[in-house]
Simulated scan of single mutants.
Amino acid sequence: MKKTIYSILSAICLLYLIGCSTPKYSIFRYDNGDDYFREGLHRIVGKDGKIGFADEKGNVVISPRFAFVFPFENGLAKATHEGHQVAEGEHWQWISPEWFYIDHKGNIIRNDHRYSQIEERLKTYVAAQDTRIGVAVIIDGKDTISVNGNRDFPMLSVYKFPQALAVADYCMKKGITLSDTIGIQAKEIKEDTWSPMRNKYGVSDLRLPLSEILEYSLQQSDNNACDVLFRLIGGSQVSDSLMKASGYGDITIGSTEDEMHRDPYLCYQNRATPIAMARLFDKFYRLEMRHDSPVHEAVGAMMMLCGTGDNRLPAPLAATDAVIAHKTGTGGRNTQGRIVGINDAGYVFLPNGRGYAIAVFIADSAYDMARTEKIIADISKIVYQSLEN
């Protein structure tokens, strides 16, 4: 009997010792392998998915408690308690509104106050306006500033950017080049809509190079040119499907320009969150999606010569060496007498080598066009002045 009890106790002790000696974490995976050691530490992942650090002997030095943390560099590691993961092709990045730095003991040394202060300034400014405003800024692909960034806003003509990506994708698959001509029937050229293309060529059957139609759509926000491109690729749903398949579920494209003209409330159907649009611009310019094909290259170059919205995002950049590529959107007034939307979104290349994607959406504005555009310019100024150095 005593031997039996002794054997059971011995087994329990052995199991306990085995359990104690088994690491209660896994090694963080990086580039399809175990995380590298930096300054004697590498990242580990706890059972709840939180991240910490262990030394070369396997000892836990900083318990897993961060949503994400970068490797140590010069005695500090950048960490956060919140955010979300975003796929970028074969890789991914972590987007968070609040970062801080820790030392080798896990102590918070300092917060990234600079970006927090930008966000607070934007929140204060936005709260003082009699309109619905959404702002998202992604800095160097790592840090996100957001005010109402996850709320839906009507895109208006900003959707001509994701549409252009669908055109580029279609052309790659079909072997269509920028110099190929596209037939346009007279009935496709509407007379009661914004159309510099119609103003130049009139209402008649014609053929134009794809490059010229894209220029009208992207640089001058031509509504007839936009609908010709929708017809070319097979409809607005093709653009929507590409966004969903590419991981941009918060960008919805459901109506053509002609459909929105006939039913203005369809403007609200073509919607996006500021964060989703900023992510798309970040991927296109910073991650160089614009080099995927000659048509993608052309789209990128065209938006750097955008002919609309000089009083919006570009306004505070005019006297600087910064370069902006952007796409605007402008709506009429709804039945309440408010402007449906005034938007601008793009990517800013700073002369110091840094860059940021920015999307500012304004919906249901009680102000006139000039005052609403100035709101976008003011937001652009706050961001630029905080990041230029």
Rank of each mutant, 00 (worst) to 15 (best):
K3Q: 14
L9I: 11
L9R: 08
A11T: 12
Y16C: 14
Y16G: 15
Y16Q: 10
C20Q: 15
D34R: 05
F37V: 12
R43L: 13
V45M: 08
G49N: 10
G49Y: 10
G49D: 11
A54V: 04
D55S: 04
I62F: 10
S63Y: 12
P64D: 10
R65M: 15
A67Y: 14
F70I: 00
F72D: 02
G75Y: 01
G75F: 07
T80F: 00
E88T: 03
H91E: 04
I102Y: 02
K105S: 11
I108P: 00
N111P: 02
H113G: 00
R114G: 06
S116Q: 11
Q117K: 14
I118Y: 03
R121V: 02
Y125I: 07
G134R: 06
N150L: 10
D152R: 13
P154N: 03
S157M: 03
V158Q: 08
K160L: 00
K160F: 07
F161N: 06
A164K: 06
A168M: 03
C171W: 05
K173Y: 00
I176T: 12
I182L: 09
I184P: 01
K187M: 09
K190S: 13
E191S: 14
T193E: 13
W194I: 14
W194L: 14
M197P: 13
M197R: 10
Y201L: 12
S204E: 15
S204L: 11
D205H: 13
L206W: 08
L218G: 10
Q219L: 12
F230Y: 15
L232T: 11
L242H: 12
A245S: 15
S246K: 14
D250V: 03
T252V: 15
T256L: 03
D258Y: 12
R262Q: 13
P264N: 08
N270R: 07
P274R: 07
A278L: 05
M289K: 04
H291V: 01
H291W: 04
S293I: 06
V295P: 00
G309D: 07
D310A: 13
N311S: 13
R312K: 13
I324Y: 00
G331L: 06
Q336V: 04
Q336Y: 09
A345F: 00
R354C: 07
Y356S: 09
A359Q: 04
S365K: 04
M369L: 15
R371L: 06
I376Y: 08
S380W: 01
I382A: 05
Y384A: 08
